[in-house]
Design a protein around this nucleic acid. Structure first.
Lengths: 250, 250
DNA sequence: CGGGCAATTGAAATACATCAAGGCGTGTGG
DNA sequence: CCACACGCCTTGATGTATTTCAATTGCCCG
């Protein structure tokens, strides 16, 4: 697994969730935590830069496809998906966003993303004016370096997604999705006893893998019957990692 | 069609091909041209920075998947494809590279790309040490801006590819591929009389669309019979743009 | 208790892959 | 100059993974 910047190593703090990964945390602009105090960035520095904190409910949209955004958004808790869609309703989920993820870096240079960001669970996020983030990066070479590493990693993920969608079978796609999500959850301390939250509906999994929810159901059921995973109550346990990797293929 | 930086507009020069698009050209590090003088960058400035020029034959590799590269590569003439592969030989083509394209920007921050770059026609390209390019960008905010726009555009293309692979039918994928290629060729003055070079083998088209070369053949044949395109002798004419767009869908 | 969304299941349809054979052009060696 | 091999494309027949259609169940929430 690729580590990003030096963020992945610094596990010396109490805050669970993706904060160790978060560029705002790294910039000392946010003390982390799940936003219990829904007011705002938890210290003066963050407030100076105009970082604001927000809470949002399941199935609400964080960002609309045609919206011009002046903000860079970072997920603080919960899960969200980032997708692009066709007018007829078909869509492709590009990323499953976990705490600590920047929602889309391209917003830094192109205010119209065309993306739809939808909260899958009740979530919190922080946002920061694009302009402010710009000057922040220009003043702090370390943060700039980290940001570019994040972009690079993100692009590599995109490429892998294309490979998966173009060249892998349904079972392989789904196995890969689960494994990738598990890895990313683990990095953030969100995987315990091989178990993680899995709030995605079948429709979401389908949209992420280019499959029909019906077919996703069948595949998932088979994985379950083969005692490779255990999925219930929006929680997924990977019982047999080796076998799952076997199915996902190279 | 999105224009990138201010490069697309500056059509005030004699050099055909993708040079108006090229960041090296924009940086005045290269006077462009098809490398008739295969020696090197055509003026002192470029040579100072250690830009070197190269010629390569059809089907040769410009960059190997496991190669660590110290260079940023720009295509000057010809066509190449950028792909990632699986050990078993299946692969996904991520981009068709035209003159003026940067081969992969991620190389700036991650020397191991995992990508295979293969020349489809006899081609020429220039390369520049990553380090040099870095300092160039840090000294020239305009170039940095242009570079980031290129990255952003490139990412958007990736996202569209994922959507296409995940959610469109074979005919739609192929139609999209042709249209995208035509647009990009047109921007570079490489489309005349609705006709462009099309050196890709069926295998390549298959690898770009996630299909079998056999199936690509059938679809292409149908488009031909329907008088929508005319493909022969490695040259493709789009006879009926409207219909092709209709097929490609939204 | 009822209504609506999510998940499951079976049967039928279809889009695409795989297998197999043949044709066409191009280069190569006798 | 011809024979031949080789790579690339085409075409038909067959196979299969996935979709589509349709019906049923369970479940959460009013």
């Amino acid at each position: 697994m690729q580590t990003i910047g030096n963020a992945a190593i610094s596990h010396t703090n109490k805050s669970v969730s993706g904060c160790p990964f978060c560029i705002l945390r790294q910039a000392k602009l946010c003390t982390g935590g799940g936003l219990e105090n829904a007011d705002c960035s938890d210290n003066g520095q963050g407030r100076e830069l105009g970082i604001t904190a927000h809470t949002i409910q399941t199935r609400q949209m964080i960002h609309h496809p045609q919206e011009f955004s002046e903000f860079v958004i970072v997920i603080c808790s919960g899960q969200a998906v980032s997708s692009i869609g066709l007018p007829d309703g078909r869509r492709q989920i590009l990323e499953i966003l976990l705490p600590g993820d920047i929602v889309f870096w391209t917003t830094l240079f192109e205010p119209m993303s065309g993306r739809l960001i939808e909260a899958i669970t009740n979530s919190t996020y922080r946002k920061l004016k694009r302009r402010e983030f710009h000057v922040l990066l220009s003043k702090r070479p370390d943060l700039f370096e980290m940001f570019m590493k994040l972009c690079t990693y993100n692009k590599a993920q995109s490429d892998q997604l294309a490979l998966t969608l173009g060249r892998r079978s349904a079972a392989q796609r789904i196995a890969k999705l689960i494994l990738t999500l598990a890895e990313r959850s683990a990095e953030r301390g969100l995987l315990n006893d091989q178990t993680m939250r899995f709030p995605l509906r079948l429709q979401h999994v389908g949209d992420a893998t280019g499959l029909t929810p019906i077919h996703v159901s069948r595949v998932l059921r088979e994985l379950q019957k083969a005692d490779i995973i255990d999925l219930e109550a929006r929680s997924l346990k990977i019982i047999n990692f080796a076998e799952l990797r076997q199915i996902a293929g190279p």
